[in-house]
Amino acid sequence: MNQEQKHDLELLAAKIRLDVLKMLQHRGYGHLGGSLSIVELMSVLYGKQLHIDPKNPQMPDRDRVVLSKGHAGPGWYSVLAEKGYFDPSWLYTLNEGGTRLPSHPDRLKTPGVDMTTGSLGQGTSSAAGIATGLKLKGSKAYVYCIVGDGELNEGQCWETFQYLAHYRMNHCIVIIDDNKKQLDGYTKDIMNPFDIAEKMKAFGFHVETAKGNSVEAIDEAIEKVKQVQDQAVCIVLDSIKGAGVPYFENMMANHSVKFNTDEINAATDQAIQALEAYIQKEATSHV
């Protein structure tokens, strides 16, 4: 990755983070923590790695993204809007009656969404199924399956991982968002995952780890797993729930946030202003 690419991806990440904050504050509530922890990942995928065409969302040879942790839909919707899959004004219809942006992604409603998700664990099986179908067709397309660390409480995830490892499905890239928290608290307190990377290796995966807030580290990890032949692959993101906004990073209950206090709204306003200033400065400096 050169410096220009890094700049562009960091700028895209700032735009995604800004969109998430604005849309959730506008709605008054929403899944903030897990949306913000995948911002840099989404920037790298849609800004550099994915073979896609926003003007042709159903392009047959496109790469697929399955957001198994479907509650992070706002983070996905934001990057889809930024890349031109639909008008950004849609973001402010999140969760409204008749919206095309429901709380959890729906492939029949949102351009760019290839798989409906939200029931935790099921997205892993769906991604494996899509990858199997593509392989049988002789397609070289990748499937990126984004899984939450809390989601790994679901046994279905591990059944899927066994399947992927057994069939050496290196074109299904499993990305685990290890942000250390889930709905009810820290993952280590609710159901200790121990060392996720080592568990995936024991299941037969080639594993890379990367800092979840570094576009460079994420891109490098993806490039490495794409070189792996004849083995299932996984990237474990060492991430922070609520990443990029210190107030929300430090909020214990940041899985789903209600914007119903002066303190929360003031912190959100401050973060929005800082992101807008950064975006304007960076965009202007590269004209």
Rank of each mutant, 00 (worst) to 15 (best):
D189T: 00
I222N: 08
L237R: 09
H206M: 06
F205E: 05
T187W: 03
L237S: 11
Y247C: 02
N250P: 03
Y247A: 12
L237D: 15
E249Y: 08
E249W: 08
I264D: 08
D219E: 15
K211I: 04
A243I: 04
K201P: 14
E220D: 13
Q227D: 01
S214Y: 10
M251P: 01
D262I: 00
K181V: 01
D262F: 03
L237F: 11
I264G: 03
N250D: 15
Q231V: 04
T261R: 05
A210Y: 14
A221F: 12
K199F: 14
N260H: 06
K199G: 03
N250K: 14
I218T: 10
I240K: 10
A197E: 14
K188S: 12
I235P: 10
V236W: 14
F248E: 06
T209L: 13
P246D: 12
S256R: 06
Q182R: 04
P193T: 05
E249N: 04
A210Q: 13
I264Y: 04
D262V: 03
I235S: 12
V228H: 01
M191G: 04
E263C: 03
D262M: 00
N260M: 01
F194Y: 14
I264S: 02
A266W: 08
E220H: 04
A197C: 13
G212V: 09
E198Q: 05
V245D: 11
V233A: 09
K226L: 07
F248H: 05
N192Y: 11
V225R: 00
I196E: 06
S214D: 13
Y247T: 03
M252V: 10
V245W: 14
N254A: 07
N250I: 09
D219V: 00
I222F: 15
L183E: 13
F248I: 02
F205I: 06
Y186I: 00
K188G: 04
V228A: 05
F203A: 12
Q182L: 06
G242D: 11
N265G: 01
A253C: 01
H255S: 08
S214I: 06
T209Q: 15
H206L: 02
V233G: 08
N250R: 13
D238Y: 03
F194C: 07
N250C: 09
A217T: 08
Q227V: 01
I264M: 10
E216T: 12
H255V: 00
A266Y: 10
V236M: 13
Y247M: 10
V207S: 01
T261C: 11
